[in-house]
């Protein structure tokens, strides 16, 4: 089963930060308080959308053909991701 990276606190719904990173080869552990990258803070579905967008060289027309959706539907999905990224960035900078 693929593990999902949690990015929202189950207690207060704030964005989670990274406390420690570990090297799976030598077990070296780095501790600190790091913000999650903006893209990692999006849902898996949104991340998959961004991957498809990059793979299609940013062409919404090609993407619409690949996904079997209409052009405005794909453009609306992109606009929703842009909106979510804006919210995530505002949250991480403490504006919200």
């Amino acid at each position: 089963m693929a593990k999902k990276l949690p990015h929202i606190c189950p207690s207060c719904s704030s964005l989670l930060n990274v406390k420690s990173l570990i090297c799976s080869h030598c077990d070296t552990e780095v501790s600190g308080n790091y913000n999650l990258p903006a893209l990692a803070s999006l849902t898996e579905e949104d991340q998959q959308f961004i991957i498809s967008f990059v793979k299609c060289s940013g062409s919404l027309k090609i993407m619409a053909q690949d996904l079997g959706l209409s052009y405005p539907t794909v453009r609306n999905m992109l606009d929703d991701v842009i909106l979510k990224l804006g919210v995530v960035q505002k949250k991480s900078t403490g504006e919200i």
Partner: peptide
């Protein structure tokens, strides 16, 4: 149906 069809074809 506009989720799947829009633009020139729909027109």
């Amino acid at each position: 149906p506009f989720i799947f069809l829009a633009g020139g074809k729909a027109l």
